[in-house]
Structure formats: structure tokens, C-alpha cells
């Protein structure tokens, strides 16, 4: 079971695993270099998400990232509605959120892939998301090889006890040198 990390609206992205921003920024700490490296990786991943046009068009924002885990939220918007009678968001928009979140989780691995692309993604829709509520996806890259990364993800609305959807996917691992 994946845990859901809820953040208050407008909260700043932060590191996972209890690394406070102060500790990360403080180079005098014994593990300052490692923490600095982790912060650099998180910053690169955040820029990576923000540079994606389609994720921006769906107003996705990165809430948390680090160590193979990413949390991305997508606010409710009339433009995403799939069923006008109920106002429920289209499954395709939830797929897009899961896909982005899965890719971010892969990029945040300490192995440091140069890039990633989705090979396959399966989504199970457990229940309709409540109209008006932000959808938050949490993806975990639980295994990575030289060429493939494996991801699990879940999406929630304001009720973080019952997932709206879950997903599993395989992603490519692009290498900076020597090709994919």
C-alpha cells in the first residue's frame, strides 16, 4: 500500500525522508554534501516537470520529489471534465497525471537517468473523483535496471483513504553516455 503525502494548498515542495530545507542547505552538517546533492537532484526534477508543456496545460504542480518517489497534484478544472452531467474529471486527464508522476519518480532515482519515456502504463479506475477536488498522484519507482524502470502509482482526491485510481507502468531509462 502506498502512502499518501498530503500537503496544504500552496505549500512549497519539500524533500521526502525528513530532510528539512535548512539541513539540506547547511553545508556545515557532516552529511552536507550528500544533502546538497539530493537537493540539486530535486531542483533538477522540479525544473524537468515545469518544462513539460502538457503538464503545465493541465496545471500540474510538483508537491514532493526525491529518492524514487514523486507527488504531483492537478487542480479541478472545468476543461478536464469527461462527464458534463456529473462534472467528473475525464479518465484521460488522470492518466496524464499518473504518467507525469511516474516519469518524475523515475527521474528522481539516485541512479540519475538522463531521461525517460513511458513504455506501458495500466490504469485502474476505482471510483469517480469528486468534482471540485484536487487530484494528487503519488508514484514510486520501486525498481530500476540499466534499461527499464518499474513504477507503481495511486491517485487520491480529498479523501486520502480511498484511491481514485491506481497505475503500474514500465519506463525507459536513458543514459547520458553510451546510448539508451
Amino acid at each position: 500500500m502506498l502512502r499518501h503525502f498530503a500537503l496544504a494548498p500552496g505549500a512549497r515542495p519539500r524533500m521526502i525522508r525528513g530532510q528539512s530545507e535548512r539541513r539540506v542547505m547547511d553545508d556545515t552538517q557532516p552529511n552536507g554534501d550528500a544533502a546538497k546533492l539530493a537537493e540539486d537532484k530535486a531542483r533538477i526534477a522540479r525544473q524537468f516537470i515545469e518544462a513539460i508543456p502538457f503538464s503545465g496545460a493541465l496545471k500540474m504542480s510538483l508537491d514532493e520529489i526525491g529518492d524514487g518517489v514523486a507527488v504531483i497534484s492537478m487542480p479541478y478544472d472545468d476543461a478536464l471534465v469527461g462527464d458534463p452531467r456529473t462534472g467528473v474529471i475525464h479518465g484521460g486527464a488522470v492518466s496524464a497525471l499518473m504518467d507525469t508522476c511516474g516519469g518524475a519518480a523515475v527521474m528522481s532515482r539516485s541512479e540519475g537517468p538522463a531521461g525517460t519515456a513511458t513504455l506501458d502504463l495500466r490504469i485502474d479506475y476505482m471510483r469517480p473523483a469528486t468534482p471540485g477536488e484536487t487530484i494528487v498522484a503519488r508514484a514510486e519507482c520501486y525498481h530500476i535496471t540499466r534499461s527499464v524502470a518499474f513504477v507503481r502509482a495511486e491517485a487520491f482526491d480529498a479523501d486520502d483513504t480511498r484511491p481514485v485510481a491506481s497505475a503500474t507502468g514500465a519506463f525507459t531509462v536513458m543514459r547520458a553516455e553510451g546510448g539508451a
Binding site: I52, P53, F54, A57, A93, A96, M98, I123
Partner: peptide, 24 residues
Amino acid sequence: DDKLIGNPFLPALHGGATASFLEV
């Protein structure tokens, strides 16, 4: 449309845009 891009460096369509298109 430019907003459908997922990787601006290639460039390539976003996997989520492709998934949405297929589901629609």
C-alpha cells in the same frame, strides 16, 4: 498543438496526451 508536448528537447508528444487521445 505545442501544449501537447511532453519532452521539449526531442520534441515528442506527452505520454499522457497520447493516453488521453486513445481513451477519448
